[in-house]
Nucleic acid binder design. Sequence first.
DNA 1: AAAGTAAAGGTCAATAAAGGTCATAAGGTC
DNA 2: GACCTTATGACCTTTATTGACCTTTACTTT
Lengths: 166, 166
Amino acid sequence: MSERNGERAMGNLADRIERYLKEILEQAEEGYVVLQRGYLAEFFSCAPSQINYVLTTRFTAERGYKVESRRGGGGYLRIIRLGLDPDGKFQRLMAELIGDELTENRANNLIDRLAEEELFTKREAILFKSIFADRIFADCTSLCNQLRARMMKELLANMCRDDLEE
Amino acid sequence: MSERNGERAMGNLADRIERYLKEILEQAEEGYVVLQRGYLAEFFSCAPSQINYVLTTRFTAERGYKVESRRGGGGYLRIIRLGLDPDGKFQRLMAELIGDELTENRANNLIDRLAEEELFTKREAILFKSIFADRIFADCTSLCNQLRARMMKELLANMCRDDLEE
DNA sequence: AAAGTAAAGGTCAATAAAGGTCATAAGGTC
DNA sequence: GACCTTATGACCTTTATTGACCTTTACTTT
């Protein structure tokens, strides 16, 4: 039961498919990968719609991905890894993604992404996520998502300060 | 908790579950264990909610633990052992904050102090202070100080995580 | 060119598989 | 008996998985 030996917790299908896709994406020079839904579904012995589930829950804009597709004969899926735009104008993009309300889940996604892009350290990501948790906002549930959105924006705004570096 | 002479009066379920979890946690190299609530409940032949009881009463931040979880298919519990903080500094600060309130000013002072002691980086201090500001909590002024206290406590607890360092 | 067919991917609702919460009962302790 | 801790069960929320049915695109036949 106590399945030790690290990280066997990713036992479910969706997680496995996610991992697989991220792996091959990692290796793709061009920053995207093209494949077929049916083929993938067969590879994982699952319903084709399971692939859509994984794409819509794991490869979202928040997490830094975009998916394009085409139906019909010769159809395909193209999964694209989005970088943060190099001109440092990521705040606008983020502000858009954040909106006026931010759930715990979406906050975690954004923070993880910023960490992947190395705008946050791993340590910062852990600490930020810890204070964005639902538990913290237990009593003001109605405002909770608004508060989180404000906090997140504040963080990003302050990322541009030039007195940040030691 | 009348622990008679050496005899362990740890007869009750909650204590047994606690002991079991701490044992396997002891052996976990990574500093955490992942398991399923349902299995654990079955293992101890008890209601699943009993597991939550044990987790919320025994595996708290003040006692040096943190619990993360995920619902749904492939769900799990992850129990994390927080490292010991040498002088109990964090623990003491946390205790101070429990049930207490924390104004923006006091928060700033505390953060500055922790930065001076090099427990926070300068950058972290700036970022934390930015999201502890009064403006952020504009609408829930009554709760604001309590929220801040909880956030600070959460930060302190997480400062002891073993996986903080890259 | 039009119609028909095959070959993709998309959507949605139902169901399964977890964990969470809360009121309350049952046990201990003083 | 008052009070606190422990334990349970009913009910809830979140996440995953499947299958039936729909839409779009390409190819084939006439």
